[in-house]
C-alpha cells in the first residue's frame, strides 16, 4: 500500500495533547479503509491511535474533532473542502487550531 506524506500543525494549546509538538511530518497509508482513499475522518482516527498522547476527549468528539477546534487544509477551511469526507492528497498541509480558553 502506498503512503501519503503530509504535514500536521497544532496550535492554541492542542499541541499539549501531542507531546508539545507544534509541527510534524507524517506518513499515512493512502487507503486506511480500503477500497476507499484515506479521508479526514480516517486521519483523525489514525491520529488518535498513533499520535495522541492523552485525553482523546479533548481532541475528538465522536468521529470528528471537538467543537472549538478549527481545521485548515492547505490554508482553506475544511468546512469548504468537504470536512470529514475530504480525501487526503500527498503533500497536504493540515492545521489544527484550538480556540478554547482564549483571550
Amino acid at each position: 500500500m502506498s503512503l501519503l506524506k503530509i504535514k500536521l500543525s497544532f496550535s492554541g494549546g492542542i499541541e499539549l495533547l501531542f507531546d508539545n509538538i507544534k509541527q510534524k511530518s507524517v506518513e499515512i497509508p493512502s487507503s486506511i479503509n480500503p477500497p476507499n482513499s484515506t479521508t479526514m475522518k480516517d486521519l483523525i482516527s489514525w491520529m488518535k491511535d498513533n499520535l495522541l498522547k492523552e485525553r482523546p476527549e479533548l481532541f475528538m468528539s465522536g468521529d470528528t474533532v471537538r467543537p472549538g477546534i478549527l481545521v485548515l487544509i492547505n490554508d482553506s477551511d475544511w468546512e469548504l473542502e468537504g470536512e470529514l469526507e475530504y480525501e487526503i492528497k500527498d503533500g497536504d498541509d493540515i492545521v489544527f487550531i484550538s480556540t478554547l480558553h482564549g483571550g
Binding site: S11, G12, E15, L16, D75, D77, I97, T99, L100, G102
Partner: peptide, 18 residues
C-alpha cells in the same frame, strides 16, 4: 468570532503562547 481570530492569526503568522 474565536474562529475568525484563529484563522487571522494563522495567516498573519502570529504565534500565541498557551
Amino acid at each position: 468570532l474565536s474562529k475568525e481570530i484563529g484563522i487571522y492569526n494563522q495567516f498573519a503568522g502570529l504565534d500565541d503562547v498557551y
